[in-house]
Design a protein around this nucleic acid. Structure first.
Lengths: 219, 219
DNA sequence: ACATGTATAATTGTATACAATTCAGATATA
DNA sequence: TATATCTGAATTGTATACAATTATACATGT
């Protein structure tokens, strides 16, 4: 999944989103077009385009003739996103159960196997990448452009949580077991079971953060 | 609910979105920055900003150095959105049941009453506006910025369906009855019931379109 | 006729110029 | 002192200029 963008405005957009979601900009911070442009070595034009896009994502608020301020994202927001994802990933897995292709199934099985492989070697660096890939594959298997798009968007918001989660070996193992069960249900085209398992998978991720402490999230 | 935008780029954005969702532009149509700018009497700058935003909403696809083409929205997409909304409006109503304020409840009750009033007078013109308002109030009552934002976005996509639906007197009556029941559940802070009713409300809207014939949707 | 190459036009990407608005500080006035 | 108002700087909004890329048309050779 290449998140690269070869236009300047695209690069500025991804960079600013990352900086906001990672907390490098704090909430309510003012974003000046010229300042950002100078920092990234571009003119105001691509910066403006990026800010307008971030506004649509809800990460900044643009006040006409005044400027852009960081909306940021609170712990409550992230919890909400997990609740939303629980529903939508369930729906997604359910749809995928009846629509998934053999190739997509094979790709998911390979993914589960790869996690197992690297986990056994204690190679946790690739976990985030592999986890991203699992979910992207699942989204695509739903066969729904709209649902997939929604879930990909939501996924970005919680990258920070997942970085923490997937650095815990015991959670990685459990998570991959849950992935395996989901794939199994997809293989059997068991819609209800796939939906329930995917829903619970997200809820388990939430429960894991409950134990870890959400308040530790934003440093 | 003011959908107005006082910047040129905002106006272009809303205008283009409306034109795409209403089918004035057909799928795969190429959108030239200069042409659009000339039509709307603005320069390329605000047009570009609008196109970049529409890309994020999935309504156009931008191919670097080539241009923007209309993604459009298919009947399948709209059905998917209804399914997604069914889940999320349920979640939303459930949350609202425990968080809604007295003022918000009063506003919802007033809305239901107003629909009744205008319906009795056969004044169907305001129905879309009032229906929009009901759902916006419900979204806000969820107390969740993220969920509200998601639902508002999804709502835009199906404006075309709702224009049809809400021009059917018998559906308007049923719809408002469903609204009334939802408000009742919110009043009693009955989370499960609110969730079920809101979920079913959207499913009923789908069933109504099933009868009407989805294929008649895109002219 | 067909493919290929090349010049030219059209279009997008980015930077800059200028207009409109807002902000900050100084000055004036009660 | 407190308040109001003016003035210039800073910032955003929009248009335009220029660069980079892509599309089109035509010529050339096979």
């Amino acid at each position: 999944m290449s998140e690269e963008s070869y236009s300047l405005s695209g690069r500025v957009f991804h960079r600013l989103r990352e900086d906001i979601l990672s907390g490098r900009y704090h909430a309510n911070e003012e974003l000046r077009e010229k300042t950002i442009g100078d920092e990234l070595g571009v003119s105001r034009t691509p910066v403006r385009e990026a800010l307008r896009q971030l506004e649509l994502e809800g990460l900044v608020k643009i006040i006409p003739n005044k400027g852009a301020i960081v909306e940021g994202i609170s712990v409550a927001d992230i919890k909400d996103i997990y609740a939303i994802r629980a529903h939508l990933e369930g729906l997604c897995a359910g749809w995928a159960a009846t629509r998934i292709t053999e190739q997509q199934l094979a790709a998911l099985e390979e993914n589960v196997f790869l996690v197992e492989f690297h986990e056994a070697k204690g190679n946790y660096a690739q976990m985030l990448e592999l986890d991203n890939r699992f979910h992207d594959l699942l989204y695509e298997a739903s066969g729904s452009r709209m649902l997939s798009q929604e879930l990909v968007n939501l996924h970005h918001y919680v990258e920070r949580v997942r970085k923490i989660t997937l650095s815990m070996p015991e959670r990685v193992i459990k998570s991959n077991n849950e992935h395996r069960q989901i794939v199994e249900a997809l293989k059997q085209h068991d819609e209800d079971r796939a939906e329930k398992l995917a829903n619970r998978h997200i809820r388990n991720a939430m429960a894991n953060m409950d134990k870890y402490g959400w308040e530790n999230l934003l440093k």
